[in-house]
């Protein structure tokens, strides 16, 4: 019981510390903004550890963070193999193919208002559908290896990126297009120099949404059949064996990979759309 009390006390203390920081001058600085969520996260981990230890929760129900950490450290090669199989081969390749295809299709239908009017409502509707349901079908078509996972990811990321790109290509103003016309710029020049750059904030919006979708697609597709490696495979088999520490280790890897993926796309966005109001700091 003393452990539980200590955990709760530490958590409350961390919260009080955060209140102090949030209302001090530190909250305006970069360090302060980084420190507050870090302290909060750390205190939650400590509370979790204390609760598991204090109540003697069985590792089959909820392993302590320390046990998960030990598993991660001990099973690095396995985790790395799963990561390569699911993330690099399945999610990443599918993401690149799907996003590229979506942008290309958006540019192709850009010249036909008829196609746009027809495809946009359908694209919008399809992005609201539980596309993940096609995973078993695609696994049946493309086999158990990463190709079927990449195919699921392609379908999942295609529509959000398509819809956003089409919206982005329409985002220029008449004045800007007129200016390009006075420069005697052709269609492709206008596209390359004005409309695609102007569409970038929208495209990146779609790309960012798609990062999570890509990981979800790759992992769920593995529930329907996979070679004997991969994050989805490991999770479903380890759950069956009640090896929850390994499951949590995979989840930690997935969370890390997902956040890093999102972060990389955000960095690319910052580098490429530095001119956009949402990216300018002051």
């Amino acid at each position: 019981m003393i452990w539980v009390a200590a955990g709760v006390l530490i958590w409350l203390g961390a919260w009080a510390l955060n209140v102090r920081i949030a209302h001090s001058a530190l909250a305006g600085t970069r360090a302060g903004r980084m420190a507050i969520p870090l302290i909060f996260g750390l205190s939650v981990l400590i509370l979790w550890e204390a609760l598991v230890f204090g109540f003697g929760v069985s590792a089959v129900i909820l392993p302590a963070p320390s046990a998960i950490g030990a598993t991660i450290a001990g099973a690095l090669p396995v985790l790395w193999g799963d990561f390569v199989q699911t993330f690099v081969k399945g999610a990443l390749s599918g993401y690149v193919m799907g996003c590229a295809a979506a942008v290309i299709v958006a540019v192709l239908i850009d010249r036909s208002p008829f196609l746009q009017k027809g495809l946009l409502p359908i694209g919008n509707f399809v992005s609201a559908l539980p596309i993940i349901g096609i995973a078993p079908i695609l696994v049946m078509w493309f086999g158990f290896d990463w190709q079927s996972k990449a195919a699921v990811v392609v379908v999942m990321v295609f529509f959000p990126v398509l819809v956003n790109t089409v919206a982005g290509l329409a985002a220029t103003e008449g004045m800007q297009r007129d200016l390009m016309k006075t420069y005697a710029a052709g269609y492709w020049q206008t596209l390359a120099k004005l409309r695609l750059p102007a569409a970038l904030p929208f495209i990146f919006n779609g790309l960012k949404i798609s990062t999570t979708l890509a990981l979800i697609g790759a992992i769920v597709a593995e529930f329907f059949g996979s070679p004997t490696r991969g994050m989805g495979f490991r999770i479903s088999t380890e759950v069956g064996r009640l090896g929850l520490d390994m499951v949590w280790a995979e989840i930690a890897v997935a969370a890390l990979a997902g956040s890093a993926f999102y972060g990389v796309v955000t960095l690319a966005e910052k580098a490429l759309t530095f001119w956009h109001p949402s990216q300018r700091q002051h």
Binding site: W15, N18, I21, A22, A27, R33, I36, P37, I39, F40, G41, I132, T211, T212, L215, I216, I219, V220, M231, G232, I235, E250, I251, A254, A255, G258, S259, F261, Y262
Partner: peptide
């Protein structure tokens, strides 16, 4: 705002299906 919001964002990069 400062402590929970960043984690809410991170929580969405975790593939829940996992």
């Amino acid at each position: 705002d400062l402590s929970v919001m960043p984690w809410a964002v991170i929580s969405q990069t975790i593939p829940i299906v996992a």
